[in-house]
Design a protein around this nucleic acid. Structure first.
Lengths: 253, 253
DNA sequence: CGACGGCTTGAGGTAAGTCAATCCACGTGG
DNA sequence: CCACGTGGATTGACTTACCTCAAGCCGTCG
């Protein structure tokens, strides 16, 4: 079974066997385990290596002068923690593991090789970055124009799609090692309000969430209440013909 | 005097004369004028060309089912409207001119050439995209953790820095062809509340804003109230030695 | 001059925050 | 095996930042 990095990028393009082996090779050399809450890379740091999430869940966040924390993105397996290291001097934010997580280390040199290639891997890396941008834009729409209930619904549905994309779930249940305080820091609500909104989602029989396990009971209706439009995830194999291989997340979008 | 695209990228790296001429050549072939309010590229479209803003002000936005609009980013001269076209099938959002604006068209083919090069231009394009990501993240912090007053202050200060970066102002006055409704759509407030918060900024002698002209009266204090930390703009010439050329935005950061 | 788009001001309403108590699940040590 | 402590979730009462609705104003352009 493919590693999640390859699997994610193959939502965009199909690789050759050789390309798959290149990627497999890169992420199997050096790996790291991370404890829940542990920083993978910190604001202000520069690392010689790029981190690719292989398992678990992580987040990008910033700490504020007043002690508050804003989570700006969740990272699922297959996501790059710090594409910036290959070109920027230092991180402008931190990345931390939420549950136990493992990452693979890819050296800056190797990343540069991939990026200056002419082939599909270079394009797939661009695709990944461009969809990261799109996800952030959607988060801004969430904050600016959707109320707390819809915002939460939208976030949870997006997580379902992204988990599917990398084969982290085949049904509607996700490992979700996240506290309500984390969810609050991500959505800009207080933990108390997160609790109330989750209650409402449960009352509406849309989800269950307990002991770090999230189940989407009614994906269709959740998508509906979230006003979810999947176009921003660009899961449409822009440059390839469809080829009989079933899309992993295709039935959700 | 350098074009704004080159000028922006030279915040990151210094180009050779040859590289400057390449860039100049690319943006001088085909240009477009845009009326205030006109769409430069629309959600769902795919264009064969990439648009680079040369003058004026534009924004990325999404329309919502309920008729609302969320502005996700402002584009100043030197910014790329649609880096995605070279790789994604269609735009997941629209870009519109706010005041009168002009853009240069760069073909997808030319973009691909630049991006698959080994040199500084390829790196500078990556830098641009990575800082776009960082700006979006900062916008999320704005929405999630800063109140209306601070959010507005932060946005205005960022615009000052970005205008400086591309030589659009040398003092503290900016052309700002933006209505309060636009500001509301960007910050997630109603126009009425924008009006009140601007009043407060005026009362505090931090800014003046009338007839499409914004003046920052007290940059130091505005930066202070905004809690502005410029690290996310990555204006630090990561890969070059400083070389006696004054930084255009350096005195603000 | 009148009309129109944009800005301002005010009064009242509401979603979400604050503060505080309680509860529950789970792990740890006696 | 139970007592206890701790971190997270829940619930409720009260407060507040921002929204809604509505009226009035002001500059500009035909």
């Amino acid at each position: 079974m493919a590693n999640p990095w390859t699997m994610k990028m193959e939502q965009f393009t199909r690789f050759s066997e050789e390309e798959r082996q290149t990627l497999d090779g890169l992420i199997s050399k050096r790996q790291q385990q991370h404890q829940p809450g542990e920083d993978i890379i910190k604001e202000g740091e520069h690392s010689p290596d790029c981190h690719v999430v292989l398992s678990g869940l992580a987040c990008r966040y910033k700490l504020l002068p007043d002690g508050g924390r804003q989570i700006m993105a969740f990272l699922v397996p297959g996501d790059l923690c710090d594409a910036e290291i290959f070109i920027l001097k230092e991180m402008d934010h931190s990345v931390a593991a939420l549950g136990p997580a493992t990452t693979a280390l890819v050296s800056g040199h190797e990343m540069r090789e991939l990026l200056s290639g002419q082939g599909r891997i270079m394009q797939a890396l661009w695709w990944g970055t461009l969809t990261d941008l799109a996800v952030l834009r959607e988060r801004i729409v969430d904050h600016g124009r959707r109320d707390a209930y819809v915002r939460l619904a939208h976030l949870l549905y997006e997580m379902l799609v992204r988990y599917r994309m990398v084969g982290m779930t085949t049904d509607e249940t996700l490992e979700f090692p996240i506290t309500q305080a984390d969810l609050g820091d991500a959505t800009g609500m207080t933990p108390m309000h997160v609790s109330r909104m989750l209650q409402k989602l449960r009352d509406e029989k849309l989800i269950t969430l307990k002991s770090k396990s999230l189940t989407i009971l009614d994906p269709e209706r959740l998508k509906e209440v979230a006003g979810f439009n999947p176009n921003y995830l660009h899961l449409d194999r822009a440059h390839d013909q469809r080829d009989g291989i079933a899309d992993r997340a295709g039935d959700l979008i």
